[in-house]
Amino acid sequence: MSECRELERALRAPDFTAPSEAMRRHAAGCPACATALRAALLLRLGSDRPQDATTRPGFETRLRDRIAAAGGFAAAPERSATGDWSAAIVGLLRPALGAAAACALIAAALFYQAASSVTTAQTADLTSILSIDPALGVVLSDDTATTAAAAAGADAAAPPSGARPAETPR
């Protein structure tokens, strides 16, 4: 059994070319190994080639012709003065565009924040006016009698300097 394994290993070695006498003897008494030996020899016989095979003369020329026919080698791009200027401009433009985008974002954020605070301030002003001026509160509540009384009360109060006195109904 170990001989079978050894033979199998020897047959798979890349440098195996022909069976040794020991392998032949073993194969003569072991049909499975005899078949394995024949298979290994068949593979080698059918795939045999000269160890030192090289391409025929003119191989490179033929290859070069085919490459040329297929479009050849693309020349490496040369750097011109214009190309350098363009590259420099692009090099400067990229960070500038980034900074501009960042500024735009910050401006948008500030604008949004300011708009929110104005709305809050306006609401706060209206509330304070209503608390100071009872007449306005009454006007907004749509109560006529209370409005008149409130107006009278307001007249009784000292008008601010420069303010037009309210007209009394006749």
Binding site: S47, R49, P50, Q51, A53, T54, T55, F59, E60, L63
Partner: peptide, 16 residues
């Protein structure tokens, strides 16, 4: 590259 690999590739192709 061609000079370096052509014979190796040829020997492989000759197997088939």
């Amino acid at each position: 590259l061609v000079g370096r690999w052509k014979d190796r590739l040829l020997r492989l192709a000759l197997r088939f």
